[in-house]
Amino acid sequence: MNAATTQTADAPAEWGPLSALPGHPLMWVLIASELAVFGLALLGYAGARAQNPLAFALEQDSLNRLAGVANTALLLTSGYFAARANQAAHAGDATRTRLWLAAASALGLGFLVVKGFEYAGEFAAGHDIDSSPFFTLYFLVTGFHALHVVLGLIILGIVGRLATKTAVETGTAFWHMVDLIWLVVFPVFYLMR
């Protein structure tokens, strides 16, 4: 936190290649780290699946694909609103920034509600994080992603309060990262077979 407040005024060249990226450079360190974690988890999924493709296919079929598609649409729309908030922040319009961020957050909340219903259905069907290799990975990866959605909502709330250019740029970068990761996680768990 201290870093963020003391470093924002610095000349852009000091962060080397990170300087060209929008928002606070350390956010991009985080984005790269998150991509690495989810990337490794999905490669782990491929490895675990290869040991028992049939069991994975059967359990994959039991997922609610429609809910997954709906959630994709929710996040993409939310991301669009967040990008609009970023534009408004650049234009110096704090009110519109906050409105767009509120809209983005509302859809993020919608994502969590849909995900909650999905989980409830899966638990009711007797699946949980320890029930099989597929569901261990499914609950770990989507659960970890959902935690990022929660964190993202908090971050959007904070940058909405500040409504400054750099803050919104940094906060929405996190939100887009959550979006981006879903775009990779969703096809792997729900669609690719």
Binding site: L40, A41, T136, L137, F139
Partner: peptide, 18 residues
């Protein structure tokens, strides 16, 4: 410990080299 720690441990500790 529960089995999912195998995944958490493997993935995050792989990045400890960074």
């Amino acid at each position: 410990a529960p089995g999912y720690w195998q995944w958490i441990g493997s993935i995050f500790s792989s990045l400890e080299v960074v």
